[in-house]
Amino acid sequence: MKVDTYTYTMIYAVVLGVVCAAMLTAAGQFAAPYKEANAKADEMRHVLTVLRVPFDPKSTAAKLAQAFEQNVRGRDRGGMSVYEYVASDGKMLAQAVPFAGPGVWGPMRGFLALGPDGVTIVEVSFYEQEETPGLGGEIGSKWFQDQFQGRRIVDAQNRPGIRIRRDGAKGSNEVDGIAGATMTCDKVEIMLNETIQRLLKERKNNDRNSQ
């Protein structure tokens, strides 16, 4: 059979395309439930970590889900899903809100965890970001995220907002920025502040409703 005729080339291309597509579909279908479970476990692990719920980091997905069930209560607040770490005596120890926004190269996602007073930060963690490694990518590193611990989401005059400063952190709502990553820092600041604004507004609404 001549393999260089147009008809043959067309048929070959179609058959090859269909076979490849079938293999890809099969692989995708097969992997889908596992991937979904992994993504869910990943998110649970992050929630547990930012809320400082004690758990074994090497535990299996089932154990993780169990720790999540026992300690964390999910709540919907004006479209924001808030996760609360509730102790066995019913006291709320910490709450975490997810945040998301555009970064320099791709989307950034993470969690902001606050203490029971609702203004002191327990932990900030970015679990998805594609910033420049070594520069903006430093937002994923421990030293940057640890700076947020114990900071407040309001300033001394109770105005909401966090500031990432170039000239060093001074106030109780300020953290030191990353040299060479002004764009990333600005975007992180905007993203965090949007979340804080929404959270405080929602809280105000809630207080008004409950009175």
Binding site: L24, G28, F30, A31, Y34, K35, N38
Partner: peptide, 10 residues
């Protein structure tokens, strides 16, 4: 892609 999918799954 098949390898990538398996890696993501397991």
């Amino acid at each position: 892609i098949v390898f990538d999918q398996l890696l993501r799954a397991f």
